[in-house]
């Protein structure tokens, strides 16, 4: 992996440090499982999710809220499975 992409993924991982423990744990398990094996589409979906407010994100992850957005739906499912 080139240094630029490596740095981008490390930055993304840092943005998975959240205000709520529930989200920290969810992202930690995801990264432990996938390592650096995320593609550009995953990266884009994760970037969108980590840009959200913590409570809104947790509502989506826990299924209290739903989204029709295909890209987010797939990533949310993977986060839940992790």
């Amino acid at each position: 992996m080139d240094e630029e992409r490596g740095a981008r993924l490390r930055r993304l991982r840092w943005h998975c440090r959240r205000a709520l423990l529930e989200l920290d744990l969810m992202f930690q398990r995801f990264w432990d499982r996938v390592g650096d094996g995320v593609d550009a589409a995953d990266e884009a979906a994760l970037e969108r999710l980590v840009g959200m407010e913590d409570h809104d994100l947790w509502d989506l992850v826990s299924g209290r809220q739903e989204t029709d957005d295909r890209q987010l739906k797939d990533m949310l499912e993977r986060l839940r499975q992790a």
Partner: peptide, 12 residues
């Protein structure tokens, strides 16, 4: 701040 201000633990 280590994280964006509105991601501080006060949110919890």
């Amino acid at each position: 701040t280590k994280v964006f201000p509105t991601r501080s633990h006060t949110v919890a």
